Amino acid sequence: MFEVLVFVYENYWRGNACPEPEQLGRKLSAQGFEDEEIRAALQWLDELSFATQGVPLQQQADASSATVLARTPGEAALAPAADSMRIYSAAEQDHLGAECLGFVHFLEAAGVLNGGLREIVIERAMATAGQPVALDELKIIVLMVHWSTGIEPDALVLDELCDGRRDRIAH
């Protein structure tokens, strides 16, 4: 499924540029992806679209990040208080593993994920098969959440999400 998601990300830079699921399925099939992979990816993308649909975003003045706004006026939906703490359930800890949870924390501390986007990333990660989720798979999920919401990560974040550490040379 993740190969399909990477193909979609690379070929449709914005979520709203992606064709309808039926047409996308035909294009993916023509690219040689297997039907089961295509079905799983299309369902995952549909659920991602539902998770991010109607989540109004407010772009920051410097355009470096976006904040998830309330779904109803005057209410801070998905946005945690500054002094709140996210406690992961046992199922989340088992499914995501320590490496992925540490990476999510890193992205939050770096300002790449706010509380609302973090919850969407965790929900989409929990919707994947396999346990625990590999770090490379989580990075694809983070990219797809940004892709679906129309938030363009800055170059350094994109480098961190796309570049494997195995290939890096220490200076």
Rank of each mutant, 00 (worst) to 15 (best):
C100Q: 01
A98M: 09
L161F: 07
L57R: 04
P132N: 09
V6A: 09
A30L: 13
A76G: 06
T67L: 14
A63D: 11
Y9S: 10
M144G: 00
L69R: 08
E137Y: 08
T128V: 15
L156R: 11
F106L: 14
G150E: 02
A90W: 10
Y9H: 12
F50L: 10
C162G: 05
D136N: 12
E137T: 07
G102M: 03
D94E: 15
A127E: 06
S29T: 15
L101P: 00
T67G: 06
A127K: 06
V4F: 05
A129T: 14
E119S: 15
K27I: 13
F103P: 01
E92I: 00
Y12I: 08
L28R: 02
I169Y: 10
G115N: 07
Q60C: 10
Q43E: 10
D154K: 11
A77H: 15
V4C: 14
V133R: 02
E137N: 14
S148K: 02
E152M: 11
A91D: 13
L78W: 14
A90R: 14
G116A: 04
L28H: 03
R118V: 03
F33G: 11
W44M: 07
C100N: 01
D62Q: 12
F33H: 07
H95T: 13
V121P: 01
Q59D: 09
L24M: 07
P132S: 10
A134P: 02
H95N: 08
V142S: 00
D62H: 11
M1S: 12
D94R: 13
G15P: 00
H95D: 04
D136R: 05
A61I: 11
D83M: 08
T72A: 12
E47V: 06
L117G: 02
G25E: 05
H105G: 07
E22T: 08
E36P: 01
G74I: 07
P153R: 01
H146F: 15
T52E: 01
G164A: 10
L135E: 10
R118N: 08
L117K: 06
D167R: 12
D35M: 05
I151Y: 00
G116Y: 03
A61N: 06
A70N: 12
L69I: 04
G150Q: 05
E47Q: 15
E22D: 10
P132A: 08
G115A: 09
P132I: 05
E123Y: 05
S84K: 13
C18V: 10
A127R: 14
A129R: 14
A81S: 13
E3M: 10
E99S: 09
L101F: 02
V68I: 13
H171G: 07
V133G: 02
R86E: 11
F50T: 11
D94Q: 15
R14G: 04
D136W: 08
G97V: 00
L117R: 07
G15D: 03
L69S: 11
L135P: 03
A91S: 08
G130K: 04
H105S: 14
S65T: 09
S65V: 02
Y88D: 13
D46N: 12
L143N: 03
L78E: 11
P132L: 06
G32K: 08
V104A: 01
L101S: 01
G116P: 00
A40S: 13
R86W: 08
A91N: 08
S49A: 12
F7P: 01
D163R: 14
A70V: 03
E152K: 09
R71Q: 15
F50V: 12
V55K: 05
E137W: 04
S89M: 06
A51D: 14
